[in-house]
């Protein structure tokens, strides 16, 4: 190593000693250098279990504010010709009850199961569950075998069929990998709600920590009757529905 480099290293060591010294130094990008000294953001914790409650009685047929918000936040703009090859992280399903004819509508996405089949079947461990219950795909190890798509009972995963250029910086996604709803993990880690929750005009979506009995979602789940979709599979989903 040459002398100037050592000097720079010493400077960095000094810089690391305190942010106050840095503020005086001109022409320095303070944020980058001092980031290491900032208090660490809270890491995903096993004490938390993120979940969502969907009140389908408030969810209007034809409204897709949540879908637009999701696609905006996560940069899902695709031009693949075949609509069946396009990604859908969040979709609206219209339901008609056989016999009674009762109609309703609801958003369907990754249910963030406690026992996710996609994680069980993934050959490389790319499908994984974070400590706080969010089920994600690690695109660094996803080989694009699509076994998780075969195994998911909710059709919540999509495969990227074409090279992409329109990703948002915070939401990497790319050709040949499988993807799905992340609960907007980039927002959650900064203390915000998933984009769909904030976008719903009827406030039909409640997001929060299922394990915290003081959270709005836990209180509501204690109060109202809710269901897990395909409860027969005993996957213990993080997304619950009301009024199905």
């Amino acid at each position: 190593m040459t002398a100037p480099d050592n000097k720079r290293r010493n400077f960095l060591a000094a810089a690391g000693a305190g942010a106050a010294t840095l503020a005086i130094a001109p022409g320095i990008n303070l944020i980058r250098v001092s980031a290491a000294d900032e208090p660490q953001t809270k890491l995903a914790s096993g004490k938390v279990r993120w979940g969502m409650l969907v009140d389908t009685t408030k969810c209007a047929t034809g409204c897709d504010a949540c879908v637009s918000a999701c696609h905006q936040e996560n940069g899902i703009v695709e031009e693949v010709e075949d609509p069946r090859q396009r990604s859908q992280w969040l979709r609206k399903i219209d339901l008609v009850e056989q016999g009674t004819g009762r109609q309703h509508s609801l958003p369907m996405m990754c249910q963030h199961c406690a026992e996710p089949p996609c994680v069980d079947v993934c050959p490389t461990g790319a499908s994984f569950k974070r400590a706080d219950g969010i089920v994600l795909v690690d695109r660094h190890t996803c080989i694009g075998c699509r076994y998780c798509m075969m195994a998911c009972p909710y059709k919540a995963r999509s495969f990227v069929h074409e090279p992409l250029t329109t990703q948002n910086p915070e939401v990497p996604r790319g050709v040949g990998c499988v993807e799905g709803c992340t609960f907007c993990v980039q927002r959650i880690d900064r203390g915000k709600n998933p984009a769909c929750v904030d976008a719903c005009p009827e406030a039909a979506l409640v997001f929060g920590d299922l394990n915290d009995e003081n959270s709005a979602i836990a209180k509501k789940l204690k109060e109202v009757a809710s269901t897990q979709v395909r409860a027969d599979l005993k996957l213990d989903t993080g997304v619950r529905y009301q009024g199905i």
Partner: peptide, 20 residues
């Protein structure tokens, strides 16, 4: 950059209110 956006501060342009 098969997956990450190489452009600084890029914002995806999604036609609002139009589901895919």
């Amino acid at each position: 950059f098969d997956c990450h956006q190489p452009k600084a501060g890029h914002k995806a342009a999604v036609a609002s209110g139009e589901p895919q």
